[in-house]
């Protein structure tokens, strides 16, 4: 049997074909770059609104604070009213709610049981409703913590669309 002589100082190098792998890798990269989308953080305002039915629990002692939002013909905000009192902005609404609630925030306080009924015009843009809910439901303090005000929300029966 002949034994192959190996040439001294030479090494057999097996070269891998890189081209197909790089092709695929770039295709993958292009796919992920194209489908990339910056996701904006979304949050919820949780509202529990059962259909109008006789309530099972004891009747509530407090009447809801009625917040009236009026719209102009274009659906923009035309006025804010709390119990008949006109307010100029959502900031004023926020301050009004805070003054109504006072400083008592503990269990059994008025703030805990208070409820707001939103009475909005049919054609008012939804973003104004969200601004009103924001003004009613709380604020962010100096430390960046959310301080909750009124969490119980309900809507007045919807009005008829303007003809």
């Amino acid at each position: 049997m002949r034994i192959r002589k190996s040439v001294a100082g030479t090494t057999d190098k097996v070269e891998m074909q890189m081209t197909p792998m790089i092709d695929i890798v770039f295709q993958l990269l292009v796919f992920f770059v194209m489908s990339f989308k910056i996701v904006e953080v979304e949050g919820d305002f949780n509202v529990k609104m059962p259909a109008a039915a006789p309530s099972e629990g004891p009747p509530t002692e407090t009447f809801p604070i009625t917040v009236r939002l009026e719209a102009d013909a274009q659906g923009k905000l035309a006025g804010i009213r709390v119990g008949g009192k006109g307010l100029a902005s959502f900031q004023a609404l926020h301050l009004e709610i805070r003054s109504l609630l006072g400083d008592d925030r503990g269990p059994g306080s008025f703030a805990e049981s208070a409820e707001v009924e939103l009475d909005v015009d049919y054609n008012l843009k939804y973003e104004y409703v969200v601004h009103a809910i924001t003004a009613i439901s709380g604020y962010i303090d100096e430390q960046g913590n959310i301080v909750k005000l009124i969490e119980k929300l309900k809507f007045a029966p919807p009005k008829k669309p303007p003809s």
């Binding site: 949050g43 919820d44 305002f45 509202v47 529990k48 059962p50 902005s89 104004y128 969200v130």
Partner: peptide, 20 residues
């Protein structure tokens, strides 16, 4: 509500801009 759903989550974007 007519179909007995009671819990609603009004979804919004988190942002520092509050007033229009």
């Amino acid at each position: 509500q007519d179909n007995s759903f009671e819990r609603f989550a009004l979804r919004v974007l988190q942002s520092q801009e509050t007033e229009p």
